[in-house]
Amino acid sequence: MWNLLNQDGPFPSDASRLAEPVSAGLSVLLTEGDDEAVLSWQERALCAQTDPEAFFPEKGGSTREAKRVCTACDVKAECLEYALANDERFGIWGGLSERERRKLKRRAV
Rank of each mutant, 00 (worst) to 15 (best):
W41H: 12
A83F: 03
C73L: 00
D35W: 01
A72L: 06
E78L: 09
W93F: 01
E88A: 08
A77N: 05
L4Q: 15
S23T: 15
L5H: 07
N86E: 05
D74F: 10
R102S: 14
E32W: 00
P12S: 11
K67D: 04
E78P: 04
R68W: 07
R107C: 07
L46F: 10
E100I: 07
R106K: 14
V22A: 14
A45M: 06
E65D: 00
D35M: 02
R107Q: 14
E65C: 01
D14R: 08
C73V: 04
A45F: 03
D35Q: 00
A66Y: 04
L5T: 15
D34L: 03
S23R: 15
G95V: 05
F56D: 07
A83Q: 03
F90D: 10
M1H: 12
S13Y: 14
V38C: 05
L18E: 15
S23Y: 13
D87C: 11
A54F: 02
A19C: 06
R102Q: 13
A54Y: 00
R102V: 07
R102G: 13
P21S: 14
D35E: 14
L29F: 09
A48Y: 07
Q49D: 10
R106I: 12
L29E: 15
N86L: 13
T63D: 10
T50W: 04
R99P: 06
